[in-house]
């Protein structure tokens, strides 16, 4: 991407500092620290169970970290419930999309704008989402549960966009999709980023993720084992072996 070379890395929008998160007595995160600069794409890589999804959940408030802090736009958010965090401008597209299957496509999108009150601004967002995902406009009256996998992913992203977020957390958006759809999804992520939204991306497709990201962090069993500029990571031997399937 052309803007990558001459980007001015902004001040950190999100700072995660030493968070430790537990599920019952099992420690999923053992002190994770990283930053997401404004207007960047940052990706978290790692094997299944490394703690990528838990990190996103700890940011969006679905789980509360026991120690450490999460700071967003200069405010501590790690003790706040999800419904407040989304109001601050963080939209989380969870793994498996978690749509409302028995609401229509349009209702799902409206739910995305639940925290907003300006009807005209919501209408404008809806038109933008429809323009970006014409299929969602076509299927507006259909129940979300009846969409195909790719359409559901688009709806999940569209729904998150309806909140007009500053930061979007994306958890495995390409999971289970056909290669053509994967391309499309990554194209969409680029567009979202280009329109000014900061993106924190969790991906199993490390190659793709690093190709669009500014920074990457590699998680292993609850800690960050490697961090750096995504171009450097793409060249890193360990990353190539472990996550890019190259020898």
């Amino acid at each position: 991407m052309s803007n990558r070379d001459n980007r001015a890395p902004g001040p950190p929008l999100l700072t995660v500092d030493g968070i430790e998160t537990f599920y019952g007595s099992i420690q999923a995160l053992k002190g994770i620290s990283f930053e997401v600069p404004e207007r960047s794409i940052v990706t978290l890589l790692g094997a299944n169970g490394a703690g990528k999804s838990t990190t996103l959940k700890s940011i969006s408030g679905l789980v509360a970290p026991a120690r450490g802090s999460v700071t967003f736009k200069g405010q501590r958010i790690d003790r706040r419930p999800s419904e407040e965090i989304v109001r601050l401008g963080i939209s989380h597209v969870p793994e498996g999309r978690d749509l409302f299957p028995e609401l229509t496509v349009l209702e799902n999108l409206k739910m995305g704008a639940y925290v907003r009150t300006d009807k005209r601004a919501i209408q404008a967002s809806l038109e933008r989402v429809h323009a970006r995902f014409p299929i969602l406009a076509q299927r507006r009256a259909q129940l979300a549960g009846t969409l195909s996998g790719g359409e559901q992913q688009m709806l999940a992203i569209g729904r998150a966009l309806m909140a007009a977020p500053t930061l979007m957390l994306l958890d495995e958006p390409s999971l289970g999709l056909a290669p053509m759809l994967v391309e499309e999804i990554f194209g969409i992520i680029r567009e979202i980023h280009a329109s000014g939204t900061t993106v924190l991306l969790v991906e199993q497709n490390a190659n793709k993720a690093l190709s669009i990201a500014d920074y990457g962090y590699v998680l292993e069993t609850g800690t960050i084992s490697l961090a750096g500029d995504s171009r450097q990571l793409l060249k890193d031997d360990h990353v190539r072996r472990a996550y890019l399937g190259q020898r």
Partner: peptide
């Protein structure tokens, strides 16, 4: 109504409803 829709949404997925900003 928005609240009615939120109630239906919550019945389907509490997690997703929270992420939308609904107070479950």
């Amino acid at each position: 109504t928005k609240t009615g829709m939120a109630m239906r949404a919550t019945a389907q997925s509490q997690t997703a409803a929270r992420l939308m900003g609904v107070s479950v």
